[in-house]
Protein backbone atom coordinates (compact mmCIF):
# COMPACT_ATOMS: atom_id res chain seq x y z
CA UNK A 1 0.00 0.00 0.00
CA UNK A 2 2.75 2.34 0.96
CA UNK A 3 4.48 1.48 -2.29
CA UNK A 4 1.42 2.34 -4.33
CA UNK A 5 1.02 5.65 -2.63
CA UNK A 6 4.68 6.36 -3.15
CA UNK A 7 4.45 5.59 -6.86
CA UNK A 8 1.36 7.75 -7.20
CA UNK A 9 3.12 10.63 -5.51
CA UNK A 10 6.09 10.26 -7.80
CA UNK A 11 3.84 10.31 -10.83
CA UNK A 12 2.09 13.50 -9.73
CA UNK A 13 5.46 15.07 -9.10
CA UNK A 14 6.58 13.96 -12.56
CA UNK A 15 3.62 15.67 -14.20
CA UNK A 16 4.45 18.89 -12.41
CA UNK A 17 8.08 18.71 -13.41
CA UNK A 18 7.17 18.14 -17.02
CA UNK A 19 4.76 21.05 -16.97
CA UNK A 20 7.41 23.21 -15.32
CA UNK A 21 9.97 22.25 -17.90
CA UNK A 22 7.62 23.02 -20.75
CA UNK A 23 6.90 26.46 -19.35
CA UNK A 24 10.49 27.32 -18.45
CA UNK A 25 11.88 26.19 -21.76
CA UNK A 26 9.13 27.82 -23.68
CA UNK A 27 9.73 31.17 -22.03
CA UNK A 28 13.51 30.89 -22.36
CA UNK A 29 13.43 29.94 -25.98
CA UNK A 30 10.73 32.30 -27.16
CA UNK A 31 12.48 35.23 -25.57
CA UNK A 32 15.76 34.27 -27.18
CA UNK A 33 17.03 36.45 -30.00
CA UNK A 34 16.86 35.08 -33.49
CA UNK A 35 13.75 34.80 -35.56
CA UNK A 36 13.19 31.45 -37.23
CA UNK A 37 11.38 33.14 -40.09
CA UNK A 38 14.40 35.34 -40.74
CA UNK A 39 16.69 32.32 -40.76
CA UNK A 40 14.56 30.43 -43.23
CA UNK A 41 14.31 33.48 -45.41
CA UNK A 42 18.07 33.95 -45.19
CA UNK A 43 18.67 30.40 -46.27
CA UNK A 44 16.39 30.87 -49.24
CA UNK A 45 18.97 33.31 -50.59
CA UNK A 46 16.79 36.38 -50.92
CA UNK A 47 14.48 38.01 -48.47
CA UNK A 48 11.83 40.64 -48.32
CA UNK A 49 9.34 41.62 -45.62
CA UNK A 50 6.42 40.00 -47.36
CA UNK A 51 8.21 36.67 -47.56
CA UNK A 52 9.24 36.79 -43.90
CA UNK A 53 5.73 37.74 -42.81
CA UNK A 54 4.41 34.88 -44.90
CA UNK A 55 6.73 32.42 -43.20
CA UNK A 56 5.86 33.80 -39.80
CA UNK A 57 2.14 33.39 -40.38
CA UNK A 58 2.75 29.95 -41.81
CA UNK A 59 4.33 28.78 -38.56
CA UNK A 60 2.11 30.70 -36.13
CA UNK A 61 4.99 32.90 -35.01
CA UNK A 62 2.88 36.03 -35.31
CA UNK A 63 0.54 35.13 -32.45
CA UNK A 64 1.02 36.48 -28.91
CA UNK A 65 3.40 34.54 -26.66
CA UNK A 66 0.83 33.30 -24.15
CA UNK A 67 -1.36 32.00 -26.96
CA UNK A 68 1.60 30.15 -28.39
CA UNK A 69 2.39 28.68 -24.97
CA UNK A 70 -1.19 27.67 -24.34
CA UNK A 71 -1.39 26.06 -27.75
CA UNK A 72 1.87 24.28 -27.15
CA UNK A 73 0.89 22.79 -23.77
CA UNK A 74 -2.45 21.72 -25.17
CA UNK A 75 -0.73 20.09 -28.13
CA UNK A 76 1.82 18.36 -25.96
CA UNK A 77 -0.98 16.81 -23.94
CA UNK A 78 -2.14 15.21 -27.16
CA UNK A 79 1.42 14.12 -27.92
CA UNK A 80 1.59 16.66 -30.70
CA UNK A 81 4.95 18.37 -30.31
CA UNK A 82 4.37 20.81 -33.10
CA UNK A 83 6.03 21.32 -36.42
CA UNK A 84 9.71 21.82 -37.00
CA UNK A 85 9.97 25.22 -38.62
CA UNK A 86 13.23 24.35 -40.29
CA UNK A 87 12.63 20.81 -41.44
CA UNK A 88 8.91 21.13 -42.12
CA UNK A 89 8.00 17.85 -40.47
CA UNK A 90 6.30 17.13 -37.15
CA UNK A 91 8.75 17.41 -34.27
CA UNK A 92 7.57 14.13 -32.81
CA UNK A 93 8.48 12.40 -36.07
CA UNK A 94 11.99 13.78 -35.98
CA UNK A 95 12.47 12.83 -32.36
CA UNK A 96 11.10 9.33 -32.78
CA UNK A 97 13.22 8.94 -35.86
CA UNK A 98 16.35 9.83 -33.92
CA UNK A 99 15.31 8.15 -30.70
CA UNK A 100 16.43 4.61 -31.50
CA UNK A 101 19.97 5.79 -32.20
CA UNK A 102 20.19 7.66 -28.91
CA UNK A 103 18.52 4.89 -26.93
CA UNK A 104 20.92 2.41 -28.41
CA UNK A 105 23.94 4.55 -27.64
CA UNK A 106 22.92 5.58 -24.14
CA UNK A 107 21.50 2.15 -23.33
CA UNK A 108 24.67 0.35 -24.29
CA UNK A 109 26.80 2.96 -22.57
CA UNK A 110 24.64 2.67 -19.44
CA UNK A 111 24.77 -1.11 -19.26
CA UNK A 112 28.46 -1.10 -20.01
CA UNK A 113 29.25 1.48 -17.36
CA UNK A 114 27.04 -0.17 -14.76
CA UNK A 115 28.17 -3.72 -15.46
CA UNK A 116 31.86 -3.08 -15.72
CA UNK A 117 31.71 -0.45 -12.99
CA UNK A 118 30.13 -2.79 -10.44
CA UNK A 119 32.47 -5.58 -11.40
CA UNK A 120 35.54 -3.41 -10.96
CA UNK A 121 34.20 -1.89 -7.76
CA UNK A 122 33.49 -5.30 -6.29
CA UNK A 123 36.94 -6.54 -7.22
CA UNK A 124 38.53 -3.45 -5.76
CA UNK A 125 36.68 -3.75 -2.46
CA UNK A 126 37.84 -7.30 -1.90
CA UNK A 127 41.34 -6.23 -1.24
CA UNK A 128 41.88 -2.58 -0.48
CA UNK A 129 45.15 -1.50 -2.04
CA UNK A 130 45.20 -4.47 -4.43
CA UNK A 131 45.67 -4.14 -8.17
CA UNK A 132 41.99 -3.70 -8.88
CA UNK A 133 41.75 -1.04 -6.23
CA UNK A 134 44.70 0.88 -7.63
CA UNK A 135 43.38 0.40 -11.13
CA UNK A 136 39.98 1.90 -10.44
CA UNK A 137 41.52 4.71 -8.45
CA UNK A 138 43.73 5.68 -11.35
CA UNK A 139 40.97 5.08 -13.88
CA UNK A 140 38.52 7.17 -11.93
CA UNK A 141 41.00 10.01 -11.61
CA UNK A 142 41.66 9.90 -15.35
CA UNK A 143 37.99 9.62 -16.27
CA UNK A 144 37.03 12.53 -14.04
CA UNK A 145 39.64 14.70 -15.70
CA UNK A 146 39.21 13.81 -19.37
CA UNK A 147 36.92 15.97 -21.50
CA UNK A 148 34.50 13.48 -22.97
CA UNK A 149 34.67 14.94 -26.49
CA UNK A 150 38.46 14.93 -26.41
CA UNK A 151 38.49 11.30 -25.37
CA UNK A 152 36.28 10.61 -28.40
CA UNK A 153 38.65 12.45 -30.68
CA UNK A 154 41.69 10.65 -29.34
CA UNK A 155 39.96 7.30 -29.81
CA UNK A 156 39.18 8.29 -33.39
CA UNK A 157 42.79 9.28 -33.87
CA UNK A 158 44.05 5.98 -32.51
CA UNK A 159 41.55 3.44 -33.80
CA UNK A 160 40.37 5.08 -37.01
CA UNK A 161 43.11 7.30 -38.33
CA UNK A 162 46.23 5.44 -37.19
CA UNK A 163 45.15 1.83 -36.81
CA UNK A 164 42.20 1.89 -39.19
CA UNK A 165 40.31 -0.67 -37.12
CA UNK A 166 37.05 1.12 -36.46
CA UNK A 167 34.89 3.55 -38.42
CA UNK A 168 35.18 7.09 -37.11
CA UNK A 169 31.77 8.47 -37.94
CA UNK A 170 28.13 7.60 -38.30
CA UNK A 171 26.00 4.70 -37.22
CA UNK A 172 26.25 2.42 -40.22
CA UNK A 173 28.23 2.23 -43.42
CA UNK A 174 26.54 4.41 -46.02
CA UNK A 175 25.03 2.32 -48.77
CA UNK A 176 25.82 -0.71 -46.64
CA UNK A 177 22.41 -1.91 -47.71
CA UNK A 178 20.61 -4.95 -46.40
CA UNK A 179 19.66 -5.70 -42.83
CA UNK A 180 20.40 -8.87 -40.98
CA UNK A 181 23.45 -9.98 -39.12
CA UNK A 182 25.91 -8.08 -41.29
CA UNK A 183 24.06 -4.86 -40.59
CA UNK A 184 24.00 -5.50 -36.85
CA UNK A 185 27.72 -6.15 -36.85
CA UNK A 186 28.28 -3.00 -38.84
CA UNK A 187 26.29 -0.94 -36.32
CA UNK A 188 28.13 -2.63 -33.47
CA UNK A 189 31.45 -1.62 -34.96
CA UNK A 190 30.23 1.98 -35.25
CA UNK A 191 28.84 1.86 -31.74
CA UNK A 192 31.95 0.67 -29.97
CA UNK A 193 33.84 3.93 -29.65
CA UNK A 194 30.88 6.26 -28.92
CA UNK A 195 29.51 3.92 -26.25
CA UNK A 196 32.92 3.54 -24.67
CA UNK A 197 33.47 7.29 -24.71
CA UNK A 198 30.09 7.99 -23.19
CA UNK A 199 30.25 5.17 -20.66
CA UNK A 200 33.78 5.53 -19.37
CA UNK A 201 33.11 8.40 -17.02
CA UNK A 202 30.09 6.74 -15.44
CA UNK A 203 31.91 3.45 -15.28
CA UNK A 204 34.50 5.10 -13.08
CA UNK A 205 31.78 6.70 -10.98
CA UNK A 206 29.96 3.40 -10.45
CA UNK A 207 33.17 1.54 -9.72
CA UNK A 208 34.03 3.93 -6.94
CA UNK A 209 30.49 3.93 -5.60
CA UNK A 210 30.37 0.17 -5.56
CA UNK A 211 33.68 -0.01 -3.81
CA UNK A 212 32.67 2.47 -1.13
CA UNK A 213 29.28 0.90 -0.70
CA UNK A 214 30.70 -2.59 -0.36
CA UNK A 215 33.25 -1.52 2.20
CA UNK A 216 30.43 -0.03 4.19
CA UNK A 217 28.24 -3.11 3.97
CA UNK A 218 31.12 -5.38 4.91
CA UNK A 219 31.30 -3.59 8.23
CA UNK A 220 27.66 -4.21 8.99
CA UNK A 221 26.45 -6.72 11.52
CA UNK A 222 24.77 -9.21 9.26
CA UNK A 223 27.97 -9.69 7.30
CA UNK A 224 29.95 -10.12 10.45
CA UNK A 225 27.41 -12.70 11.54
CA UNK A 226 27.73 -14.51 8.26
CA UNK A 227 31.48 -14.51 8.63
CA UNK A 228 31.17 -15.79 12.13
CA UNK A 229 29.00 -18.62 10.86
CA UNK A 230 31.96 -19.58 8.73
CA UNK A 231 30.41 -19.07 5.31
CA UNK A 232 33.00 -18.95 2.50
CA UNK A 233 34.19 -15.52 1.44
CA UNK A 234 32.84 -15.56 -2.13
CA UNK A 235 29.42 -16.61 -0.93
CA UNK A 236 29.31 -13.80 1.55
CA UNK A 237 30.29 -11.39 -1.16
CA UNK A 238 27.70 -12.68 -3.58
CA UNK A 239 24.79 -13.38 -1.31
CA UNK A 240 25.05 -10.62 1.22
CA UNK A 241 27.47 -7.88 0.44
CA UNK A 242 27.00 -7.43 -3.28
CA UNK A 243 23.24 -7.46 -3.19
CA UNK A 244 23.03 -4.91 -0.45
CA UNK A 245 25.88 -2.79 -1.70
CA UNK A 246 24.75 -2.67 -5.30
CA UNK A 247 21.27 -1.36 -4.64
CA UNK A 248 22.29 2.20 -3.83
CA UNK A 249 24.60 2.13 -6.84
CA UNK A 250 21.76 1.14 -9.12
CA UNK A 251 19.55 3.76 -7.59
CA UNK A 252 22.18 6.39 -8.19
CA UNK A 253 22.77 5.08 -11.69
CA UNK A 254 19.10 5.37 -12.51
CA UNK A 255 19.23 8.94 -11.40
CA UNK A 256 22.23 9.53 -13.67
CA UNK A 257 20.95 7.60 -16.67
CA UNK A 258 18.84 10.43 -17.97
CA UNK A 259 21.88 12.64 -17.86
CA UNK A 260 23.59 10.32 -20.29
CA UNK A 261 21.38 11.94 -22.91
CA UNK A 262 23.04 15.26 -22.07
CA UNK A 263 26.49 13.75 -22.47
CA UNK A 264 25.27 12.27 -25.71
CA UNK A 265 25.10 15.75 -27.25
CA UNK A 266 28.88 15.92 -27.19
CA UNK A 267 29.52 12.31 -28.07
CA UNK A 268 27.03 12.35 -30.92
CA UNK A 269 28.62 15.52 -32.25
CA UNK A 270 32.09 14.01 -32.23
CA UNK A 271 31.08 10.69 -33.77
CA UNK A 272 28.38 11.95 -36.10
CA UNK A 273 25.93 9.65 -34.34
CA UNK A 274 22.46 10.41 -35.70
CA UNK A 275 20.60 10.75 -32.39
CA UNK A 276 18.69 13.19 -30.22
CA UNK A 277 21.76 14.96 -28.91
CA UNK A 278 22.92 15.87 -32.36
CA UNK A 279 19.38 16.91 -33.22
CA UNK A 280 19.29 19.22 -30.21
CA UNK A 281 22.49 20.92 -31.18
CA UNK A 282 21.46 21.40 -34.80
CA UNK A 283 18.07 22.70 -33.69
CA UNK A 284 19.77 25.15 -31.38
CA UNK A 285 22.01 26.57 -34.07
CA UNK A 286 19.09 26.88 -36.46
CA UNK A 287 16.80 28.37 -33.81
CA UNK A 288 14.24 25.70 -34.50
CA UNK A 289 12.11 26.45 -31.42
CA UNK A 290 9.54 23.71 -31.61
CA UNK A 291 12.14 21.09 -32.27
CA UNK A 292 14.36 22.26 -29.45
CA UNK A 293 11.42 22.35 -27.06
CA UNK A 294 10.44 18.89 -28.13
CA UNK A 295 13.93 17.54 -27.58
CA UNK A 296 14.08 19.16 -24.17
CA UNK A 297 10.77 17.76 -23.16
CA UNK A 298 11.87 14.39 -24.36
CA UNK A 299 15.12 14.45 -22.40
CA UNK A 300 13.32 15.59 -19.28
CA UNK A 301 10.77 12.82 -19.61
CA UNK A 302 13.55 10.32 -20.08
CA UNK A 303 15.20 11.48 -16.87
CA UNK A 304 11.94 11.30 -14.95
CA UNK A 305 11.03 7.88 -16.33
CA UNK A 306 14.44 6.55 -15.40
CA UNK A 307 14.14 8.02 -11.93
CA UNK A 308 10.72 6.57 -11.31
CA UNK A 309 11.66 3.15 -12.62
CA UNK A 310 14.70 3.16 -10.38
CA UNK A 311 12.69 4.26 -7.38
CA UNK A 312 10.13 1.53 -7.94
CA UNK A 313 12.66 -1.18 -8.60
CA UNK A 314 14.51 -0.06 -5.53
CA UNK A 315 11.48 -0.27 -3.29
CA UNK A 316 10.39 -3.60 -4.70
CA UNK A 317 13.77 -5.27 -4.45
CA UNK A 318 14.66 -4.00 -1.04
CA UNK A 319 11.66 -4.07 1.31
CA UNK A 320 13.75 -2.58 4.08
CA UNK A 321 13.80 0.77 2.36
CA UNK A 322 11.33 3.14 3.80
CA UNK A 323 9.39 4.33 0.80
CA UNK A 324 7.84 7.29 2.49
CA UNK A 325 11.16 9.12 2.56
Amino acid sequence: MATLEFVARRLVWAVFVILGIIIVNFILLRLAPGDPAAIMAGQAGATDEQYIAQLRAQFGLDRPLHVQLYTYIFDVARLDLGFSARQQVPVADLIFQRMPATLLLTGVAFLFSLGVGILLGALASRRAGGWADSFITVLALAAYATPIYWLGLMLILLFSVWLGWLPAYGMATIGGGAGGLAYSLDVARHLLMPALTLGLFYMAVYARLTRASMLEVQDQDFVKTAKAKGLPDWRITRAHVLRNAVLPVISYAGFQAGHLVGGAVLVETVFGWPGIGRLAFDALLQRDYNLLLGVFLFTAIMVIVFNIITDIVYTLVDPRIEVGR
Partner: peptide, 8 residues
Protein backbone atom coordinates in the same frame (compact mmCIF):
# COMPACT_ATOMS: atom_id res chain seq x y z
CA UNK B 1 18.72 18.66 -11.50
CA UNK B 2 16.23 16.98 -13.76
CA UNK B 3 17.39 18.86 -16.82
CA UNK B 4 20.69 17.46 -18.10
CA UNK B 5 23.26 20.09 -17.18
CA UNK B 6 25.29 20.04 -20.39
CA UNK B 7 22.20 20.66 -22.49
CA UNK B 8 20.92 23.37 -20.17
Amino acid sequence: QTIPSVVL
